[in-house]
Design a binder for these strands. Sequence first.
RNA 1: UCCUCGGUAGCUCAACAGGCAGAGCGGCCGGCUGUUAACCGGUUGGUUGUAGGUUCGAGUCCUACCCGGGGAG
Length: 373
Amino acid sequence: MGIRFHVLKEDDKTLARIGIVETPHGAYETPVFMPVGTQATVKTLTPEEVLECGGKIILSNAFHLALRPGSELIKNLGGLHKFMHWDRPILTDSGGYQIMSLSPLVKITDAGIQFKSFLDGRELFFTPEEVIRIEENLGSDIIMPLDECIPYPSSKEKAREALERTIKWLIRSIKVKRREDQSLFGIVQGGMFNDLRLEALERVSSMEVEGIAIGGLSVGEPKEMMYDILEYIMPYAPKDKPRYLMGVGTPLSLVEGVIRGIDMFDCIFPTRLARHGGVFTSKGRLIITNAEFTSDPRPIDEECNCYTCRNYSRAYIRHLFKAEEALGPRLTTIHNLYYILHLMDRIRSAIRDGSILELREEIAYYYRKELSI
RNA sequence: UCCUCGGUAGCUCAACAGGCAGAGCGGCCGGCUGUUAACCGGUUGGUUGUAGGUUCGAGUCCUACCCGGGGAG
């Protein structure tokens, strides 16, 4: 038995909805944000700290873990949950994104991807079947098939090719998947083309998948383009399956995604931003290393109740960053994850009481800079 | 007291044989969207120890002095 999904409430003015996903490692409510732990760790934090921030499910990465330390090793040590001491739900991404982000090292054909390891230069070959095998070794609750994620901009021909390849790979993935305690999602590609996107959605939806993921967005296109595509296709998404928008996680894009019917998100942005000194607040983004905070006794966000904001000043955190102390990135990571996960709480409350559009207006006001470009 | 090496951006140092005084770090500002990223980018910094001299032109050559390192006595 893999996941079970139920919709608990649908908003009447938007496509937003509240749902619950039950997994072999516990349940979580949607819309949900998944902190990213690519290398079997949410960078700088312990699992207990991720929990304290409100984390319910995390994302890890089959490709990276296969390269190091190897999926057999993790299997022999009792699986990914035990290996990293996280007993809650885990979703593993396949490495499709790495086809794009590591493109100079990658050669892609219908058979799979051939690439040169950035760790030791080894020539490796990844197939959809091999990725499923890796994910079965890892034992994550939700597994993503190998897909082809293309950059922006890309031609329609290129988008069509990636779409077809992604679907062929999904069929092969379904065919070899054995473990029944894991749930496979299908990934919708199609570049920035509405007709391709809709076609991909319909084809993926007709297959034996337990969730629908929208991939290949937020790859550098204008924000409005992503919102338009979601608006165009999401009304046709199956209602009885979770819908996952891959790689999205700025405050505004989370709300905009939810309004368009998305249930699950993951994004490295909150954690990476934190390590680089950027923090979310209820009044927009700050860069904590800036001189204006040198002697500022206030917490990062006076309205925040996270561990960092309950105990530390902007001046102290700025000092930690300037002194290159490891505690600095840890404290900002705790804060940013708490901010985003607490925002998801607020989003669910707003769906419950019918005020999601008001919440969108508030976030859009303080994060309007996200709209530019 | 003498000999010797050195003094260039806040710091550490570049600048062939006189020819527009630079870099790294720091400072300041910005960017990061299924993580090869505690990363990347932009930008601000100078009476070249002081005072003279030679020269079309001196960080660079000459003279004196000041400061610091090393050595001799």
